[in-house]
C-alpha cells in the first residue's frame, strides 16, 4: 500500500527501541495501518487506484445524501427548483429568520468570493480577473423567480460551476432567500424602515439605493 509522507508511525520507534534495547518485540505497524481505508485513501486493489468507488448508473441512494426535504415540501421543487417545466416562485418550505441567518452564513462562504458581500458582483476573485457576474439587484435578476437562483447554484450558469456537490439543497434555498434580502437591501424605500433605522440614515427623503451601487 502506498505510504504517504508523514506516516512513520513505528519506524523511528523501532530504531530507537533497538538502541534502547527495550521493547524489542511488538514493534509492528499492523495497528497503525489496519486493513481498511481512510476516506480518499489510495488503493492498489482497484485498477483506477481509488478506494472510493464511483457510483454505477442508476444507483438509488438508501438515504438521500442531499438531505431529505422538510415535511410538506414538494420534492421536485426542493431538489431542482423546477416544477412542471416552470421555475419555482417560492421557497418550497417556510422561510424564517433562522433560514435567512443560515443563508447569510452560507452566502459568505460560497458566494462572496465572486459576488461580493452585497451581491454587487465585485468580489475578490472578480477583482483578480474572473468575469464579473451581474449584481443581484439588477432589474433582470430582481424579476427572476427565486427558483432561478436555486437552479443556477444547482447546475451552474455560464462560467459559474455547479455548487450542487458543495451546498446541500436546503442551504441552497437559504442562500436563494438571502439573495432576496440583498436585492431588497439595495431597493428598500426609506419610508418602509422602522423609526430607529431611519434615524441612522445620513440624509432625509432619499431612497435606499446607495450611490455607487449601480452597475458600472
Amino acid at each position: 500500500m502506498n505510504r504517504p509522507m508523514g506516516r512513520r508511525p513505528a519506524r523511528a520507534g523501532c530504531w530507537a527501541a533497538a538502541l534502547a534495547l527495550v521493547g524489542l518485540s511488538g514493534c509492528r505497524e499492523a495497528m497503525y495501518q489496519q486493513p481498511r481505508y481512510d476516506p480518499l485513501e489510495a488503493s492498489t486493489f482497484f485498477d483506477d487506484g481509488l478506494s472510493s468507488r464511483p457510483m454505477l448508473p442508476g444507483v438509488v441512494p438508501h438515504e438521500d445524501p442531499r438531505g431529505a426535504p422538510p415535511s410538506g415540501a414538494d420534492e421536485d421543487v426542493f431538489y431542482t427548483g423546477w416544477k412542471s417545466g416552470r421555475l419555482a416562485e417560492e421557497v418550497p418550505f417556510p422561510v424564517d429568520r433562522d433560514l435567512l441567518v443560515r443563508g447569510k452564513e452560507r452566502f459568505g462562504i460560497y458566494c462572496t468570493p465572486c459576488h461580493g458581500l452585497s451581491g454587487d458582483g465585485r468580489g475578490v476573485i472578480v477583482r483578480r480577473g474572473f468575469p464579473q457576474p451581474p449584481p443581484y439587484y439588477s432589474p433582470e435578476l430582481r424579476k427572476q423567480p427565486i427558483g432561478h437562483f436555486f437552479d443556477v447554484m444547482t447546475r451552474g450558469y455560464g462560467v459559474m460551476y455547479s455548487y450542487a456537490s458543495r451546498i446541500k439543497p436546503r442551504d441552497r434555498w437559504a442562500i436563494a432567500a438571502y439573495i432576496r434580502v440583498l436585492q431588497l437591501s439595495q431597493h428598500a424605500e426609506v419610508t418602509t424602515l422602522p423609526e430607529a433605522d431611519r434615524a441612522k440614515l445620513p440624509g432625509e427623503g432619499s431612497t435606499g439605493e446607495a450611490a455607487g451601487r449601480k452597475q458600472p
Binding site: P4, G6, R8, A12, G13, A16, L19, A20, V22
Partner: peptide, 24 residues
C-alpha cells in the same frame, strides 16, 4: 540504559517521528 531511554524519547519527539513542520 539511561542514555538509550533519553535518545528514544528525543527521537519520538523529534520531527523525524512526528513530522511536525515537515513539508511534504
Amino acid at each position: 540504559a539511561a542514555g538509550s531511554v533519553t535518545i528514544f524519547y528525543l527521537i519520538m519527539r523529534s520531527p523525524y517521528q512526528t513530522q511536525v513542520k515537515v513539508i511534504p
